[in-house]
Amino acid sequence: MSETKALTSLEALRRLKEEAHREIHVRESTGTKIIVGMGTCGIAAGAREVMRAVLDELARQEIEVQVTTVGCIGMCAQEPLLDIVQAGGSRVTYGKVNPEMVPRIIKDHLVEGRPVEEWVIGRIIDM
């Protein structure tokens, strides 16, 4: 029975793919990326829940960006870390991020182009 269910769910996924297929090239062309620190230090500080909040907020606002992770980068005390990289722009790092902070980071920084300065702990210009 569970096999039938799995097949049904796979069908559902195939349908989702058909619907979403047109939008992909939009995402690829923007080059914007969100990176969550997922080393031991990140996970222990709650990075998995931060990533969940990012995915949920992107889905809610129907925003298409690449989401990925990185291991320990040596700023363990500032975890969970979240970076926003924009093509031709800067790479901005947020520290001690919790899920409640994510909607504002996405709205202000990603949508409106204004980084949330009080939460920014690092920045690299001209990636």
């Binding site: 799995a6 996924l13 195939r14 989702l16 793919k17 619907e19 297929h21 995915l55 889905a59 960006v65």
Partner: peptide, 28 residues
């Protein structure tokens, strides 16, 4: 491989794929 087969070139971070995956696993 199930995910690859069904979602094709849709990346796993696509909201629809992540949501499907979460639901599929929770059910299983």
């Amino acid at each position: 491989s199930l995910l690859k087969e069904a979602a094709g070139d849709l990346p796993p971070s696509h909201p629809a794929v992540a949501q499907w995956l979460r639901a599929h696993l929770a059910e299983g």
